[in-house]
Design a protein around this nucleic acid. Sequence first.
DNA 1: GTCTATAGTCGGATAGAC
DNA 2: GTCTATCCGACTATAGAC
Lengths: 228, 228
Amino acid sequence: MSVNTTNTPRGEQAKLALLEAAIEIFGLNGPNSATTRQIAQRADQNIAAIAYYFGSKDGLYLAVAQHIADIIRDEFRPVIEEIDLFLANSADERDESRCLQLIELSFLAYNELVLKKSNINISRIMSREQLIPTKAYTLIHEQALSAIFTRQARLVARYTGLPDGHINTLIHTHALMGEILSFRLARENLLRQTGWDNIGPKEYDMINDVLREHIRLLLSGLKQHYRN
Amino acid sequence: MSVNTTNTPRGEQAKLALLEAAIEIFGLNGPNSATTRQIAQRADQNIAAIAYYFGSKDGLYLAVAQHIADIIRDEFRPVIEEIDLFLANSADERDESRCLQLIELSFLAYNELVLKKSNINISRIMSREQLIPTKAYTLIHEQALSAIFTRQARLVARYTGLPDGHINTLIHTHALMGEILSFRLARENLLRQTGWDNIGPKEYDMINDVLREHIRLLLSGLKQHYRN
DNA sequence: GTCTATAGTCGGATAGAC
DNA sequence: GTCTATCCGACTATAGAC
């Protein structure tokens, strides 16, 4: 893939427009059935521009993945820094409530990321990559997701007393994360069962309340079990 | 869609072969980028057979959805009958452990359904339908999923004391179901974090143990909270 | 009922004008 | 750097032979 690295304002703007249109079209259609014609039209750019700036349709898809990884990394940088600070400095057992708070913070931040309407196509692309992973998933996982999930598991271990780095701890953390993901990945099921026609601010708040309750119940239950 | 209703053995066999091949190809590719050529080839049938038996590619996709709904309905019929029996006969409060058992049973049955290797493409199709729902989702939901989830929510209400039919109860149930779904819908994330290269019997057992523990912890926590 | 051949459409990529 | 025109392959659907 030979990506043009021009920095002229016009070129930069064209690239960005193509990237954003591509997120939308790839989100709605998947990498195979999305067409470069659709993307170019949505971005108000010429079809040939895709080949020029990104080498090929495939190059554009990978650039989209990189863009998504950047967005997620930026979004989570503050949370990750706070977690690292906590994990580095707090070897004692006093900071339980801070630990719980950080777990809640990072999980609910993830919920916001995937449920935010403006991110709908990003999360569509990511879930499709979970079903049929391509190089794009590797990129997003290694550059963004891995850092988040690794720290979440470490916090869960610290809080509950589950062994740090142990596979069982990873499964517990993954299962808990599943509660968050379900509201995006099984969104349609939720809508049909509740009769909602959308997840707006009111619905979002109800979901968040339930999630917060589940996180606290589960973690305190696990803690009682594994600390003794 | 004009579906041929021939009942000659050869015709029936051709239809079934096409259906099963279609599940595989639609699972791997999504309804747009899957091609009738691929499906016909995999089924060892002529391309024209698809138009003949199912009217069109779209007709085949809907037939696949119907086939999936049938499979799920058959799989869950016994559980659903047990649940209905329980809900009808046990108005008293004594049967708590039976209630919990049924919740666990139905949730873990769902886990088996989505994780079973032979069903991998069925669950791929279903998750894609959650992302971008088509008529196929309506069909599967109304004919199979709705019956399961409605009863699960009723059991959860019964066990925890949450109000039956209330939206909050539905959200609680959905969130809990999310734990199960995550092992299929975020499977790739799990594999990368654990280093597994597959979810085999050993991994499946570990997952099931964690899920059972979470179900019990969460439901008993909710019960303490809402029963008092 | 089953198949081959093909019509008609749309896809990604590119050559070459400006 | 940007765009138009076009090549060529792949797709669905169908007409018509057997």
